[in-house]
Amino acid sequence: MNNPLQELNNIHASQTTKEKTLHFVLKHKHHHKNLYLIPVIACLLILLFIPFRPKPSVPVAYVSLDINPSLELRLDQDNIVLEAKAYNKDAKKILKTIQLQGQKLETAIINLLNDKQYKSYLQDGLLEISVFADNQNLSTNIETTLNDLLKKNLEDNQYHCRQVTQETHHNASSHHMTAGKYQIIETIMSYTSQYSLNELKEMTILQLYTILYTFNQEDVPTHCQPTHNQENHHQNHH
């Protein structure tokens, strides 16, 4: 049977590519194991010569909240909000009227959910929350705390909360957006070049998930899927 793609038979790797690859692999497979020793030795030296660790005032965890207001809460090791950063105009408007800095995370979230302006965004929108901390236990604890809190205060189909990786957190930061929104946009852009980054940045979470759903339903959490939300928004409003 004729293979419809048989012209791919004419595609071959060049000898140059093969030789470069072999040279690279042989060079790096020997050096690679030695590189592990460097951070280990550095950590041992630090632990030996620095006995006291002052209480850090730098954030150790980040919680981003997106509906269309996009904001990020930067937390210390006791889950106190050190800083609330707005990533768009809607978030700036919210933060002008509500003080979140200095509050415990749970208190800050409840105050946000009870804010009249914020509630109006939530009514027809979807809240995407992302959690990142270098310390995996801390990240998991925060995610659990938030899920418990949100379950008591919102309907299932109104929110989605998940941890993100360090890579996602850093990439989002370099693109001046929240990690939660970045993760969805990155997934959409892996499927299509139909939308520009700036176009997607302006969209709400609900709009982004609706687009993502058309490419791969599996990438959209079940309770965030358009059909699920249409039924439930219909029930909530009638």
Binding site: L8, I11, T17
Partner: peptide
């Protein structure tokens, strides 16, 4: 190598990126 080159082709990778992918 040829199989990997074909996959890079269908992903429309420039030759400079193909070398990175091989490595």
């Amino acid at each position: 190598a040829d199989m990997i080159q074909k996959i890079c082709f269908i992903h429309m990778k420039q030759q400079c990126d193909v070398d990175d992918i091989f490595q």
